[in-house]
Design a protein around this nucleic acid. Sequence first.
DNA 1: ACGATGATGAAC
DNA 2: TTCATCATCGTA
Length: 191
Amino acid sequence: MEIILDKDFFEQNTVKVARYLIGKYIYRKTEYGILRAMITETEAYHGTDDLACHCSKGKTPRTEIMFDEAGKIYIYLIYGMYYMLNFVTMPKGFPAAVLIRGVENMEFKKTGKSVWEKLPNKTDGPGKLTRHFSIDKKFNHLQLKPKNGLWVIDKGITIPDKNILVSPRIGIDYAKESKDLPWRFKLNKKS
DNA sequence: ACGATGATGAAC
DNA sequence: TTCATCATCGTA
């Protein structure tokens, strides 16, 4: 059974969403075909009290999207060259999002064909991920749904807790008392 | 270990 | 309007 994840799924605690996104599949449709992969690494950014969250600065032109409805896409540019992919969580008005850091099992189905061909794994980082999926700022503020060319599917696979590595988030040493929160989730290959 | 490269938010 | 900073990656 395959379910397209929508507002109902994303409109809950950001840490839970980050945890349960592991093992879900991200789909990206272009004129050439459909690219899909399993999400294997995520991070939660939750509320104005989270000093690592961009929204800790309050509502600004950039962070406004995090205050919007759950299931929307937040894209920003980092280090002048990499786009980061985030999904907005929590009810409208509460700023929060999940960063998608990594995927595995990339497959591609050409337009007009019916077979999925496996692709080599090169998506072990948030910047590479958006590059391989051709995701850029035009997705900012869009909703996750097939019509927009980007969506997430639950294939009914549940990853047990013992196969998930929980740790502090990457690259946020500046975040003082928030920097050690265990809000990063990663699929543990050996189990 | 470090530079590429530009948006962002805060200070002036 | 200027300035430091940055949820990264490839090269060394």
